[in-house]
């Protein structure tokens, strides 16, 4: 294990968090907080004007992130963070809009919005905490639950096929796609930094332990056991073919940056196209 991947405990970053809302609601050993740490670290390194960064969350344990970051932050409804972010970004193109939410929120109930925002190359960054289940509501089966894993609504084990999030994102049109685990904190930070600096639709999936529900129900031990699993079974393969990234129960986890390409964003396309068609009659937007 390289030094940069080691888990570090950091002082909460006062400038980035709403200290008046701490302690947070997450369980001890939950991985969501560590992803938030990576996010704040990336913000710090990015040197972005924090007044121009907005966070949008849906509903879920991860959805609570919006409530803790000291930014313009929106806790919306289940599944609708992505279209909310779409409206926010289009209304104020100066903003860097980050959606921070769970796998169920973005790919279950909100899946349709995800693929369409990716298709349009909407200039937003999606940080998805994938804990393989619907945690907030008590550990139900999700679109990301690996086959065979147990969930409260799959008490005999899950028999459905799961989404591979990077594959879905690339196919739908995302211009930046990465997957890490919450063990790879520095890498997560670096990916977030890269994606923040890049216009276009980005997805960063972070596989994260839900100790209280997914781990307990599947008898996988505590947070450390899960990190050990990530450590043992993860392989970094930058540029891996996203068709090969399925996750099997406690199986291999291919991580890395898979997609990083250039494409005009929704607003670029709109301005370019309308200018081409309407010439001087077009009132340029957001430039």
């Amino acid at each position: 294990m390289k030094k940069e991947d080691r888990l570090e405990s950091k002082n909460p970053m006062e400038g980035f968090l709403r200290m008046d809302r701490i302690p947070h609601i997450w369980c001890p050993g939950c991985g969501i907080g560590t992803v938030v740490t990576s996010f704040t670290e990336a913000l710090k390194k990015s040197k972005l004007d924090l007044d121009k960064v907005a966070v949008v969350s849906g509903i879920g344990c991860t959805g609570r992130v919006a409530g803790y970051v000291k930014l313009d932050s929106f806790h919306t409804t289940h599944g609708r963070a992505v279209p909310f972010a779409t409206g926010l970004k289009l209304a104020n193109p100066d903003l860097k809009v980050v959606v921070f939410s769970g796998d169920g929120d973005i790919f279950g109930i909100g899946g349709n919005h995800f693929i369409h925002a990716a298709r349009r190359n909407m200039d937003i960054l999606i940080i998805c905490v994938n804990n393989f289940n619907y945690a907030m509501t008590g550990g139900q089966v999700a679109a990301t639950t690996p086959m065979e894993a147990n969930a409260s609504t799959a008490p005999y084990g899950n028999f459905e096929f799961a989404f591979s999030l990077p594959y879905l994102a690339e196919a739908a049109g995302a211009t930046y796609v990465a997957r890490w685990t919450s063990l790879h904190l520095r890498r997560v930070t670096k990916s977030i930094q890269e994606a923040l600096a890049k216009p276009g639709f980005s997805l960063i999936e972070v596989i994260t332990p839900c100790v209280t529900l997914y781990a307990r129900r599947n008898r996988l031990g505590d947070g450390l056991n899960l990190l050990k699993y990530y450590y043992d079974k993860s392989v970094i393969e930058h540029g891996a073919d996203t068709r090969t990234l399925d996750i099997s129960y406690q199986g291999k986890l291919v991580v890395g940056k898979f997609v990083d390409k250039e494409k005009p964003t929704f607003l670029d396309r709109m301005n370019e196209h309308m200018t081409k068609i309407l010439g001087d009659k077009y009132v340029k937007y957001g430039e």
Binding site: T76, R80, P83, F84, T86, G87, L88
Partner: peptide, 9 residues
């Protein structure tokens, strides 16, 4: 959802 986001924008 986009409309509500746009109002905050």
């Amino acid at each position: 959802a986009a409309m509500i986001g746009a109002v905050w924008g």
